[in-house]
């Protein structure tokens, strides 16, 4: 079929206008590509999750946790008395930050067991400043974070081991600070205090 020249022009013009519409925002295929994002749902796996869980009795690379002291806070089932690495100022600052995020909601900023969630009806934990807990070893605290403690949830999935030790170090520092006697204050500072 032969179109008249004018008609053919009109036809081309219409086609162009139609093409313009295509440009207005076609957002299908490339927007959702055949790959999974983290935590996306999946029709392929039975449990409907794209993020797979560890297969039982397997160890991920770099996850062979042979250092008992560092990973469990126990040696032969007894909570350790020492830290697996030196406690520096950086460790304490990190510990304070993580304590305020994860522990303060229940244990309070100073560890008195009077955090916001407790005020809203959660079981009240003991203050960290009673004698029993002041004498408790770092391994004991590490164990509570790693395995949970009674009503308290397990934090092992959210806090990596380095941070758990940092939190323990900070709790130990809190206990010292809340129990400081006047005799512990250095002499130079004491003068400052007396002048006030």
């Amino acid at each position: 079929m032969q179109l008249k020249p004018q008609l053919s022009k009109l036809f081309k013009f219409c086609a162009l206008v139609c093409l313009l519409f295509v440009m207005t925002g076609c957002r299908f295929n490339m927007r959702d590509q055949p790959r999974y994002e983290a935590l996306e749902g999946s029709a392929f796996f039975e449990d409907g999750r794209a993020s797979r869980q560890m297969i039982e009795d397997t160890v991920a690379r770099d996850n062979l946790r042979t250092d008992e002291h560092f990973y469990t806070g126990q040696i032969d089932g007894v909570p350790v008395e020492t830290f697996p690495f030196p406690v520096t100022k950086e460790v304490l600052t990190r510990g304070q930050q993580r304590f305020d995020i994860f522990c303060a909601p229940c244990h309070g900023r100073i560890g008195d067991g009077n955090g916001m969630i407790v005020q809203r009806g959660f079981k009240q934990p003991f203050s960290f400043h009673i004698d029993r807990l002041r004498d408790a070893s770092p391994g004991y605290f590490y164990g509570a974070i790693t395995n949970g403690f009674g009503a308290m949830p397990i934090y092992a999935t959210r806090i990596p081991p380095e941070d758990r030790w940092a939190i323990v170090a900070y709790i130990k520092a809190l206990q010292l600070s809340q129990n400081a006697a006047l005799a512990d204050v250095p002499e130079t500072e004491l003068e400052n205090l007396e002048n006030q």
Partner: peptide, 28 residues
């Protein structure tokens, strides 16, 4: 960061597992 735990270290901020909610809502 109590709930969006990985936001500092990974591309994905993450939405909390229900385990995290239950940590408090087992009682509250």
């Amino acid at each position: 960061r109590y709930c969006h735990v990985y936001v500092e270290d990974s591309a994905f901020a993450g939405v909390p597992q229900t385990e995290i909610c239950v940590g408090c809502h087992s009682q509250v």
